[in-house]
Design a protein around this nucleic acid. Structure first.
Lengths: 231, 231
DNA sequence: AGATACTGTGTGAAAATTACACCATTAAAT
DNA sequence: ATTTAATGGTGTAATTTTCACACAGTATCT
């Protein structure tokens, strides 16, 4: 009986919204498309999923092929399924986001020919993007803005060792408002998951600030029953 | 050039997790499948999306066809895309949830032959479900549990006019813990979006409680800049 | 030596959260 | 008429959290 059932194929895609933080500015990763449709347009890194890979695996592969970036923790956040969102037919897309440190060492280098190049672009003043990617970006930005206050995602955007001022300016960039320095530091430290290091900032022309690290272990212990539900 | 591009078809599905509240218990809507695969199994209401309907439209249609329920506000919450989640091939599924009042008047009556019947089942002691539907349910339950405290979703589960005790017992059912009556009432009323009615409960063999209504207008005013970000 | 630019710190007021117990009202049972 | 069972409805004090707010210290550059 099972043998009689028809067998299904499917065409759907993944799009990735990768956030980074650099020079006090929040940025996302864009590619310049080298393939129709929307050839030469700017777009989010995204492509069609293969039949034999899970959507989570596909997200990793596709991001790697288009940008050269690997091993980020991407999270699915929404699926976009308007009938005409893709000019070639019915293609829904599952959108993922990730937050990463922008790091001069990590070269952005498309592996496939589908992208001509990949680069960081500030989230303010984004140009028009291919497909419905502008909408996808907007949704992603809304999600991380809210999530910032419930999950320790800020630390994925900062270098491993960071100053409290850097952390604060990230919050300010995402929330788009000024925060009080004393209250911010008090609150962050009170959580108990920041590890104070014996090191100081270098190369600044003013008093060097202490460096801190996000301590995943302590975090896991502290929020085992609270914020972790979210995972 | 555009004319040369291949044209895509796709097979993917929608599954719905519909929560209701009755007799102090949280329930979800299940169907008994009348079609292979998983014929005779219990499952979430779900089916394949047509090529010419958006996924949001599809969710409404599918739920209606399998259960007779219409005009709920469903919200997409996750897409499930493991390679072998569907025995007939590659079928990812976009999952939606909704919260509704269980109402004796609304008959549960499948329109198509794909479901033999539709019925409410308590969320505790759920049987094994078809496909990966047990996992889908679990994810949905996690989402609404967290959302309960950020968004006014509780009122969608209660009758239009409800008592504070009913509201409290809903919170207790979802959070699975007892709450303090005085603090709960104080807090709920302090929000200012509950409208006290001149009516009282009827047909109870003890002191009748006042009835309240959720006042969407006041809610929208009060939380315009806060919780509404979430929408 | 002075200018510059940022680091790092404390206190008090206000608001929100928590813990906690008893009398009032109604319908049903006697 | 009285009692019983079940829930409705209410306040206060202690604690915790949030918020507003200002200035001296230090490294670097000139």
């Amino acid at each position: 009986m099972e043998a009689k059932l028809p067998s299904f194929d499917s065409v759907f895609s993944i799009d990735c919204v990768i956030f980074g933080f650099e020079a006090g500015e929040l940025k996302i990763l864009l590619i310049e498309r080298n393939e129709e449709p929307f050839k030469d347009w700017l777009a989010l890194p995204g492509y069609i999923v293969e039949q034999d890979e899970s959507i989570d695996d596909a997200a990793e592969r596709i991001l790697y092929e288009l940008t050269g970036l690997r091993d980020l923790h991407m999270q699915q956040f929404h699926t976009f399924g308007e009938v005409n969102r893709h000019p070639q037919g019915r293609v829904i897309t599952v959108a993922y986001y990730a937050l990463i440190r922008i790091n001069g060492q990590k070269e952005l280098r498309p592996i496939t020919q589908y992208a001509r190049k990949a680069f960081w672009h500030p989230v303010n003043e984004l140009p028009k993007l291919a497909f419905d990617h502008s909408e996808i970006f907007k949704t992603a930005f809304g999600k991380i803005r809210r999530r910032l206050n419930y999950q320790p995602i800020a630390f994925e955007l900062l270098p491993e060792k960071f100053t409290l001022t850097q952390l604060q300016s990230l919050y300010e960039a995402v929330e788009n408002r000024k925060l009080d320095k004393r209250n911010f530091r008090k609150k962050m430290l009170s959580y108990g998951f920041l590890k104070e290091l014996d090191e100081k900032q270098k190369g600044v022309s003013y008093r060097a600030a202490k460096l801190y690290k996000f301590d995943r272990r302590r975090y896991a212990k502290i929020f085992h029953n609270d914020m972790n539900i979210d995972k």
